[in-house]
Design a binder for these strands. Structure first.
Lengths: 149, 149
DNA sequence: TACTTATCCTATCGGATTAATATGATATAT
DNA sequence: ATATATCATATTAATCCGATAGGATAAGTA
């Protein structure tokens, strides 16, 4: 499971992506209201995203946050990792939260390790080819599909 | 991430699978020693696996635990679920730990939900086709590969 | 300059979960 | 009977997560 932090980060970035081209900038308060996220918690999240080079910010009146890359360059795997969310099912197969199993003499001989590597690769494959733009497009399609009913 | 409980369960069942055909039975103490797992913790885990119909047990001297199905019928997804390990990345896409997102008006219109469903399906596809026998076979292959070096 | 608006930053809190233990009851071989 | 093993429930200690507090800093505006 990924933490709420990662989920909120994705939601917030989706908001920023929607206003991207026109020097799109939104304040914490605006995003928090739009997505029903605790204002203070979101503040911490956006700060972290800034430290990870995903968003930029401007202080003062009329300030706010904005994307540093185009919405189709920002992919889910990157967002999840930048906010401390693990993708792998065990630390021993995690890229960013790697920790060896105690008493596993040879990781390379462990069958479970081997299978869970495959699982991680399958997950990352999907998450790293899905960008913010893709997310938005998906929602457009889903909404069309739903109207036809 | 899955809890250690699930990982230990898989290790313990792999032990039982290795002694399966000949009315294979092992005591908690034997498994705990073999796999370096806390004896008492393992006890709780095996109890849970019994309640989930995966192993059977016999009390008293010469007692112990044994598999109730053949090792190639017991798959990883089942073990993980039986020990409380979530596979999905968010509760809203989990089969066994489902919880709707608060303030997500229509789950079916959520792009993230849509993507994470794909991720879960990819993961489950692998985990539900990998049995204890497969795990053991994998380890044999890995060990051969390693000798050739 | 004074004031207001917004981000920056660090510290902290309560609650939940996790991994592990403790304790004693129950069953079954010899 | 006694020793050996599982059964069952309760408790602990540590960690993590989601959220909050409070003040510092920067930038626009009158």
């Amino acid at each position: 499971m990924i933490p709420k932090k990662s989920k909120y980060a994705i939601q917030a970035l989706k908001c920023l992506a929607k206003v991207y081209p026109d020097q799109g900038k939104l304040s914490i308060a605006q995003i928090a209201a739009e997505e029903n996220i605790s204002r203070k918690f979101l503040e911490a999240i956006l700060l972290q995203l800034r430290h990870n080079g995903i968003v930029g910010s401007k202080m003062g009146p009329n300030g706010g946050y904005y994307l540093l890359q185009s919405p189709d360059e920002i992919v889910l795997s990157n967002i999840i990792r930048s906010t401390g969310g693990p993708i792998a099912l065990l630390p021993c197969v995690s890229l960013n939260f790697y920790e060896p199993c105690e008493d596993c003499p040879h990781e390379e001989l462990c069958g479970l390790h081997d299978v869970l590597l495959e699982v991680r690769e399958a997950s990352v494959r999907i998450l790293s080819k899905t960008s913010l733009s893709d997310l938005i497009n998906r929602e457009k399609k889903l909404s069309k599909k739903n109207k036809n009913k």
